[in-house]
């Protein structure tokens, strides 16, 4: 039993540490991009990196990768309704800005 638990400890840690290193690397990358990238590029890069980091956390730390279909559906619903909120509100905001 201790044999098994030792291997499972190893597996849990290895997997977690890889994700952690990736997350910190992305953090460093976004910090670098914020200063080095041209101003118009910085925001898309930084939010792209943030989205990637959030996806890593959701998939590998919160284990959406091995979750039930139902759980994934719940997460997808959150994002879908978020898209409704953003799309329709920005329809107004952007068309008002374009006309002003």
């Amino acid at each position: 039993m201790s044999e098994r638990s030792r291997t499972s400890i190893g597996r849990i840690w290895r997997r977690g540490l890889i994700v952690w290193v990736l997350l910190l690397a992305f953090l460093a990358l976004s910090l670098f991009a914020a200063y080095a990238a041209p101003a118009s590029w910085a925001a898309p890069i930084n939010f792209g990196i943030a989205a990637t980091q959030a996806a890593l956390v959701a998939l590998l730390l919160m284990r959406l990768d091995r979750a039930d279909a139902l759980v994934r559906l719940a997460a997808a619903c959150g994002l879908f309704w978020l898209a409704i909120l953003f799309a329709l509100t920005l329809t107004d905001t952007l068309s008002r800005l374009a006309n002003s």
Binding site: S30, A34, Y35, A36, A42, A43, N46, F47, Q53
Partner: peptide, 17 residues
């Protein structure tokens, strides 16, 4: 955690370049 990940570029990274 994820919320902070999104807040970080909003609050800290804009306008640094």
């Amino acid at each position: 955690d994820m919320i902070w990940i999104v807040l970080y570029p909003m609050l800290y990274l804009d306008g640094r370049a």
